[in-house]
């Protein structure tokens, strides 16, 4: 009874210890693959990998994966790159000083002006459209000579038609 209780305590303790060791070893696997472990740490890790199948599998998978992520082929900066940078430096240096100072203020002001202008133009266009529409309605009414029905008797077909056309 006492012995089995003691064993449980020990195995529980060993289990916890192994988990803690494994977590540390997982971090060391990452460092090992980057060549960042000391000699002592390397031999400790290799010993652990020899006895721990989980960590060994983690190591194999990580190594295989990192081996498949190779650096993309080296590319070369385009030959015109320095000319482009020089051009940008030139533009920057030849910008009038006043413009440089006012730039932070000018940009929002210009955006606001554009917005106001857009609202104004939209409003004018809308008014123009409404007035043209009214004129068209009048012309349409005149064309149909609707005044001819003004004196038509109530509830007659002509009177109903006249009311419909005049929007009453």
């Amino acid at each position: 009874m006492t012995a089995s209780f003691f064993c449980k305590i020990v195995s529980k303790y060993i289990g916890a210890k192994i988990e803690m060791d494994c977590l540390r070893m997982r971090k060391n696997i990452s460092k090992y693959l980057d060549g960042e472990l000391t000699k002592d740490e390397v031999s400790e890790l290799l010993n652990h990998l020899g006895i721990c199948p989980d960590c060994n599998r983690e190591y194999e998978e990580m190594k295989m994966l990192l081996d498949s992520i190779k650096a993309p082929a080296e590319v070369f900066a385009p030959p015109h790159l320095f000319a482009s940078i020089r051009q940008r430096i030139y533009v920057q240096e030849h910008q009038p000083i006043l413009l440089k100072l006012l730039k932070p203020i000018l940009v929002p002001v210009v955006y606001s002006l554009v917005l106001v202008a857009a609202i104004f133009i939209g409003n004018s266009l809308s008014r123009n459209f409404l007035s043209t529409n009214t004129q068209n309605k009048e012309a349409f009414k005149l064309t149909l000579n609707l005044t001819a029905f003004d004196d038509a008797p109530g509830n007659s077909f002509s009177n109903i038609y006249d009311n419909l056309m005049s929007g009453e």
Partner: peptide
Amino acid sequence: YKNKVFNLVYRYVGTYYEAEELTQ
């Protein structure tokens, strides 16, 4: 440093034209 920087940027953003702009 142009090629070193250009490669670093290219590997970060993944496209040549973006790498060119950012290197500038």
